[in-house]
Design a protein around this nucleic acid. Sequence first.
DNA 1: TTACCAATAT
DNA 2: TATATTGGTA
Length: 290
Amino acid sequence: MSFIYGNQQTVDLIICDLFFPTEDSLLILQEVTSKFGIPTVIMSSNGDTSTVMKYITNGASDFLIKPLRIEELKNIWQHVFRKQIGAEHIRKCNNAQQVDQLSSYRAMGITEATATLDNEIRESNGTVTDIRDLRKSRLSWTMQLHRQFIAAVNSLGADKAVPKKILEIMKVKHLTREQVASHLQKYRLHVRNSTQTLHKDDTPSSSSYPNNESSILRTQLNSSSNSMYFDQDGCMEITDYSLPKDDLSSGSECILGERNNYSPECFQDFRWDSDKQGSETTYLWNFEAE
DNA sequence: TTACCAATAT
DNA sequence: TATATTGGTA
């Protein structure tokens, strides 16, 4: 804003990302349009109709949905040009254009990001072999993808599981080494925290906290938020991570970090009975949720 | 050059 | 929070 204040004569156009959750962009938009009338384009990965509406209503000249294609930027100059034509004319044009914009978004199928997240190509056994949804910029680690990741990690062994090898074993097209690396980083972090809190909470007597106190403790020790995983369900969680074996029901000896010599074929034909797609992503790491 | 990985950004 | 990107290092 200070830059804009200092350069209001020379700023022709503002492209502003939509910031969550503070929504600074909305404030900027309102201030800019009310004080300077500089055409402002809002940019976001969130294309919900309500969101787009809100910003258009508050004076945005356009609403671009990320990831952007270069063609979408080519015509941005028109907002500057349109402003120079004259106030009255602008209003009519803008109104008409806004409607067009929205309907064209809708026509392109961009509007509802909630539509279908099923961007995976699967084989008959449920194994994911490809991920592609060029419009979605972020990969979502679904349960099945995660299972294949875990299977790869386990087959390699804790020490040898590095992104490139995991990627090779997973055999998922369009999946990048960087994405695996990112996931691996988080996975290791999770494992580290888990085992750490496992040792901490080893004393059976202290394993059950009163509910009201546990929330207090949780806010004080940031690692203790994990303890809730393991108070009871620790083993269940671990079995979920370990490779799907013939009999997991026997349980008890499923140790993380224990290398098992699974060959890639072992999980090739593996199938989980229930393969519910949905908001499963949320529960990848947090099994305490239900 | 390539890949790891921790830190940091989005 | 979940995932992506960066930058130092091997």
